[in-house]
Design a protein around this nucleic acid. Sequence first.
DNA 1: ACCTGAACACCGTTCAAGT
DNA 2: ACCTGAACACCGTTCAAGT
Lengths: 214, 214
Amino acid sequence: MGSMAGSASKRPRRKRAGQYHHGDLRHALIDQALRTILTAGVEGLTLRGVGEALGVSRTALYRHFSDKQALVAAVAREGFRTFRRALVDAWEQQGRGRAGFEAMGEAYLQFAVAHPSHYRVMFGRFMESCARDPELINEATGAFQALLDALVEGQREGWVRQDDPVILARFVWSVTHGIAMLVIDGQLRDSDEAGAALNRYAAERIQAAIAPSL
Amino acid sequence: MGSMAGSASKRPRRKRAGQYHHGDLRHALIDQALRTILTAGVEGLTLRGVGEALGVSRTALYRHFSDKQALVAAVAREGFRTFRRALVDAWEQQGRGRAGFEAMGEAYLQFAVAHPSHYRVMFGRFMESCARDPELINEATGAFQALLDALVEGQREGWVRQDDPVILARFVWSVTHGIAMLVIDGQLRDSDEAGAALNRYAAERIQAAIAPSL
DNA sequence: ACCTGAACACCGTTCAAGT
DNA sequence: ACCTGAACACCGTTCAAGT
């Protein structure tokens, strides 16, 4: 990790001649904020630190974001983007069936465990964040849609009961989100192995819960 | 609400004559911190504000807690205490059967919705909090134990499958915790009704998931 | 023992000013 | 348009000093 993401901070790429420091400061700010959150958590994110790391005044950011929370919301949006991609990839690489559905569940927990601080930013204070970044809701519902699609396909194929797909998806989401939160918040002793074991067991029980009645 | 809790702040109850301001400052600090968290959230909690509300220096607290996080941990511990009581009450008032189990689930969500900030403090950064308050883990496992007991009794009565009770309890906990988090973080549009509906549906699906195989 | 008050090293945000 | 620098109103925490 740490290699992807920001091209902006390496080559200034100034639009015109004699500019200040950056060409795409907005993007660079999001990248730097993400980097900080990944290593130090949201509570370690400081506007002054972000500015300093980018060689820019600590108030330069107010040209691109209304306040700190708006910057955090942008990071959250970026998170939902890669999150959705991870889920869809897992689903499709396993052939979109029952196996794909299970792979999605594994990919879900994997993302949360690999980037706990990012995951927390994405789901914590969601409503307030959406107010600061209306497009965030699109990315978030996009991720939810991946789960929804899988369940609808499961209904067509007959391994998912014919309940309202939305509430069905919310139920499955609750289980996975719950496991993810318990694991990254350290509620399970020996979180590494216990979390994986819980996830395997949950996958089995979820299949039983969402299966057709008889 | 707002009537229970603190007796300490009303009658100073000084141990000896000519004292400063309080008799049980430690307890008063926890009560005041809880009050602030309930109304303004953890991010609205400020040591200076707590001190001011109690008519005490803002550094007086350091005689009773190592730092701010330790105060928050004490509030979390108090939360697990009343949380456990709420769960056990629901369980017992419904006659400790299948109905009691379902009542526990409702009581769970009810607590989270009624005190979202408190719930978040209890479950967020759990490991770090435990380091600041070792007894916190006892109260937390006490709440978990209530769920565990119900499931074991369900196994004896035959409406719960004979899997490892701990992992069974963790699964049920994940669902309920997941729902609670999604609701209080505003991830469901129209959280009030949608949350209750999801909880009802989840109760039904959980019963199916934890039922014996045939 | 218990509490205070000044001091320290931080914050996010505003705003007049520069280019 | 984009960025700066000083200023403002906050933080948690430390520590010598008081009773």
